[in-house]
Amino acid sequence: MLIITCPYCGPREQSEFHYGGEAHIARPADPQALTDGQWAEFVFMRSNVKGVFAERWNHSSGCRKWFNALRDTSTDRFLAVYEMGAKPPQIDAPELRTPAGEPLIGSGNDETKVMTEAEMTEAEMTEDLGGGS
């Protein structure tokens, strides 16, 4: 179960929250002025990002406020939370390991579960490996 940081209450268990789908999709001001295609784009179409995704959450079993979050969908890690109406903060794009868009660690993707020999050689030179953090 994730910990989600409500901008108003602080870190809370995921079970207190409801998911609200992709963020920054404003309801058109004058729907009747839109073509069928444009309206359908608003109603039905959402992006399905692997990686950093801006999405809405509601602290439904807490303060009941809606807010936005940036989450890496390949690792489930929250990178930022911010208020409704605010612009998403700048996030450094993670370094990707797999062609499909998973980062070096945290996705559980097959390609990321075990270090390759080349990576081990490189890592032994640059970092202190081991289970310790």
């Binding site: 660690i105 890592a123 289970g131 953090s133």
Partner: peptide, 16 residues
């Protein structure tokens, strides 16, 4: 054996 932790974790002893 463990190489890099993803969470706030450490593996010690024979597990490491």
């Amino acid at each position: 054996r463990p190489a890099r932790s993803w969470q706030e974790e450490a593996t010690v002893g024979a597990a490491n």
